[in-house]
C-alpha cells in the first residue's frame, strides 16, 4: 500500500489548486444531495397546518401519528410487504444466483438476458403491465389470491429485487472457487448437505445484503405500488402520493424522518456484515450500486 504514503508526500509541500477545486466541488455536491433530506427532517418538527410553511418548533407532528390510524396502517402495510417481498426475492434470487455460478452453460446467457431485460425496463411499464395482468388473473381466471392487496404488492416489488439478489449471489460465488464444494462431495456429503453446509454459508453475505436491499427497494417503491395496490391495503408511498394532491401535512415529514433512521440502521447492518466478510469500501459500493 504505497499509494497513500505517496499521496501524503506529494500533498505536504503545497496543495495544488486542482485538489482544492475537487474538494470544494465534492463538498458542494454533498450539500446538494443532502439539502432536501435536511429540509424534510427540519419540517418534521414544524408545528403548523402545512408542511411547506414553517410555523414554529415542536413535536406535535410525531404525537399526531399516534392519533392517525391511516398513516400507521399504511406504514404497517409497507413493512409487511417489504418483508414478504424481500423473502420471496431472496429465496428465488439466491437459488438462481447459485445456479448461474455453479452450473454454467448456455442457459446462463438466456437467463442473464431475462434479468437484464427486467432491470432495464422502466418501472412505469412494469406498473401498467401488472395492473391488467393481475385483474386478468384475479377476475377473469378467478384466482382470488391475486385480488389480495399484499400479494399484488409483493409480486410487483419482487421483480427488480430478484434480479439484484441473483447478481449479488452470482458475483459472490464466482469470486470463490468451487473447491470447497468438490471437497465436500469427495467426502461423501450428499448434494443437499453440501448445499446447506457449504454453498449457502459461502453465499451468505450476498444473501443478507440482497435481503436488506430488497426490503428497502420495496419500502421505496411508489410507481408499481400506485398501480397494483387495492383500497384497504395502501402502502406508505402511495399514501404520500395521494396526500400530495390534498395537501402535505408535517406528519408525513415525521414518518419520513423515522423511516430514514430505520433505513440507516438497516444499511449500517449491511455494511457491517459485508465488512466482516472481508469486503473493502469499494466492494461495498459495488454491491450497493448493484441496482
Amino acid at each position: 500500500m504505497s499509494a497513500p504514503a505517496a499521496q501524503r508526500q506529494v500533498r505536504r509541500p503545497r496543495r495544488a489548486w486542482s485538489d482544492v477545486a475537487f474538494n470544494v466541488w465534492g463538498i458542494l455536491v454533498m450539500v446538494f444531495l443532502f439539502a432536501p433530506i435536511a429540509v424534510i427532517i427540519v419540517s418534521s418538527f414544524n408545528v403548523g397546518r402545512l408542511l411547506v410553511s414553517w410555523d414554529h418548533f415542536g413535536f406535535d407532528s410525531f404525537l399526531a401519528l399516534l392519533a392517525k390510524p391511516a398513516i400507521r396502517d399504511a406504514v404497517w402495510i409497507s413493512v409487511q410487504t417489504g418483508f414478504i417481498a424481500a423473502l420471496v426475492a431472496t429465496a428465488l434470487g439466491t437459488l438462481a444466483g447459485i445456479a448461474m455460478a455453479r452450473h454454467p452453460g448456455k442457459w446462463v446467457w438466456w437467463f442473464m438476458g431475462l434479468l437484464l431485460l427486467v432491470s432495464v425496463t422502466p418501472e412505469i411499464v412494469d406498473a401498467v403491465a401488472l395492473l391488467p395482468w393481475t385483474v386478468f388473473l384475479g377476475q377473469d381466471l378467478g384466482m382470488s389470491i391475486f385480488n389480495d392487496g399484499i400479494v399484488r404488492l409483493v409480486i410487483g416489488h419482487s421483480l427488480f429485487s430478484i434480479t439484484v439478489v441473483s447478481y449479488l449471489v452470482r458475483a459472490r460465488l464466482v469470486g470463490q472457487e468451487a473447491q470447497l464444494e468438490e471437497a465436500s462431495a469427495d467426502l461423501y456429503a450428499t448434494p443437499t448437505r453440501t448445499f446447506r453446509k457449504v454453498t449457502l454459508p459461502l453465499a451468505m453475505p450476498a444473501v443478507f445484503a440482497g435481503f436488506m436491499l430488497s426490503f428497502t427497494f420495496s419500502l421505496d417503491n411508489t410507481v408499481i405500488a400506485a398501480f397494483v395496490s387495492v383500497s384497504g391495503s395502501t402502502p406508505w408511498p402511495v399514501y404520500v402520493l395521494s396526500a400530495l394532491r390534498s395537501g402535505l401535512k408535517p406528519e408525513i415529514a415525521a414518518v419520513s424522518t423515522i423511516m430514514l433512521v430505520l433505513t440507516l440502521i438497516a444499511l449500517g447492518l449491511v455494511a457491517l456484515v459485508l465488512r466482516r466478510a472481508g469486503d473493502s469500501a469499494a466492494d461495498i459500493a459495488r454491491t450497493m450500486a448493484g441496482s
Binding site: 444531495l33 435536511a38 429540509v39 424534510i40 404520500v240 423511516m259 433505513t263 469500501a281 461495498i284
Partner: peptide, 25 residues
C-alpha cells in the same frame, strides 16, 4: 467509506419524500 455512505444515504431515502423536499425548498 464515509464518502460512499454519504452518497448512498440520499439514494436510500424515499424517492417521493426527497422530491417533496425539493418542492418545499
Amino acid at each position: 467509506g464515509l464518502l460512499i455512505a454519504l452518497v448512498m444515504v440520499p439514494f436510500w431515502t424515499n424517492f417521493l419524500v426527497r422530491t417533496i423536499g425539493w418542492q418545499v425548498i
